[in-house]
Simulated assay, not measured.
Amino acid sequence: MRAGGRTARVRTAVLEAALHELAAGGYAALSIERIAERSGVHKTTIYRRWQSKEAVLAEAVGDLVESLFPIQVTGEIDRDLRVFARALVDLLTSDAPLVVGAVRALFSDAAHDPRIAELKRELYARRYDEARAIVQAAIDRSELPPDTDTRELIGLITAPIYYRFLVTQEPLDHAVADRTAATALIAVRAGACRLG
């Protein structure tokens, strides 16, 4: 199918409907039937393409995260890490209903569902894979040691942000993001994030 054709329109309608339903009723109330009703796409079409509400949700949340939390390589590791940390803070603190619904599903009791847990693992795995571009570009520019472990570096940035969001519920803003990025960069340059 060509880009922008019926397939693309169906995909967009279904994924947007899933996010709206998630925001309106939460994960427990989400169903293929409700997605079909809201999207105007017959449920057999949805089942044929996605097989389950979890598959629809995984794709919808994945697209949402990638659009709101892009991985960017700007040419300077300090800036790249700040942009990364700020985008995560912006995502977690967004008051847009669709974002709130998606974040709630990922971090609420629904996250105990094995299918949602798998969705989260896949989402984070993609983020780590995409973040490798930032680290590799910095290694190529000799800004980071050649044996830098991407997963460890990204963990140093994201862990304090998630800790504030999920545990202490302290305010999150760009100043917090900038501090976590700067601290992680100091640590990685000191050899704290080496492979092996």
Score class of each variant (00 low, 15 high):
91 L>M: 10
121 R>Y: 06
108 S>E: 08
110 A>E: 06
145 P>Y: 07
78 D>Y: 11
86 R>M: 02
90 D>V: 04
159 A>Q: 12
87 A>T: 09
113 D>G: 04
69 F>H: 08
123 L>Y: 03
122 E>R: 14
155 G>M: 02
85 A>T: 08
149 D>W: 06
115 R>T: 01
158 T>L: 09
159 A>M: 07
79 R>D: 05
101 G>A: 05
90 D>P: 01
87 A>L: 11
73 V>N: 05
88 L>N: 04
97 P>W: 00
85 A>K: 03
167 V>P: 05
109 D>N: 08
138 A>C: 09
164 R>I: 05
93 T>H: 01
145 P>S: 11
83 V>M: 12
91 L>I: 08
133 A>S: 13
111 A>N: 01
130 E>A: 14
118 E>P: 10
159 A>H: 07
160 P>A: 00
74 T>C: 03
110 A>G: 04
173 D>G: 04
171 P>W: 02
136 Q>C: 00
111 A>S: 14
89 V>N: 00
125 A>K: 02
77 I>H: 10
142 S>T: 14
124 Y>E: 02
157 I>C: 06
173 D>C: 04
104 R>K: 15
170 E>D: 09
152 E>K: 15
157 I>S: 04
77 I>R: 09
141 R>V: 01
136 Q>G: 01
131 A>G: 07
150 T>C: 08
85 A>R: 01
101 G>V: 01
76 E>W: 10
117 A>M: 14
71 I>A: 07
115 R>K: 12
68 L>P: 03
88 L>V: 11
78 D>F: 15
70 P>T: 12
88 L>G: 03
75 G>M: 08
125 A>T: 07
97 P>A: 06
164 R>Y: 06
98 L>Q: 15
172 L>M: 06
85 A>Q: 01
152 E>M: 11
163 Y>H: 15
122 E>F: 08
167 V>S: 05
145 P>V: 06
68 L>I: 07
106 L>I: 08
152 E>R: 15
107 F>W: 07
106 L>G: 12
126 R>H: 08
169 Q>K: 14
105 A>Y: 10
153 L>S: 04
109 D>V: 14
74 T>R: 12
135 V>N: 00
144 L>F: 03
70 P>R: 13
125 A>S: 12
106 L>V: 10
169 Q>E: 10
95 D>A: 03
126 R>Q: 13
87 A>G: 13
103 V>T: 08
80 D>S: 04
78 D>K: 15
143 E>T: 07
109 D>F: 02
130 E>I: 02
117 A>P: 00
103 V>L: 00
151 R>E: 15
174 H>S: 03
106 L>N: 05
135 V>A: 07
160 P>L: 00
84 F>L: 07
77 I>F: 12
117 A>F: 15
67 S>L: 09
128 Y>S: 09
156 L>M: 12
129 D>Y: 04
83 V>L: 10
122 E>G: 15
95 D>P: 02
131 A>H: 06
137 A>R: 14
75 G>W: 00
153 L>V: 09
70 P>F: 13
76 E>Q: 12
77 I>M: 03
148 T>N: 10
164 R>K: 09
76 E>N: 13
110 A>D: 10
108 S>C: 11
106 L>Y: 10
97 P>D: 11
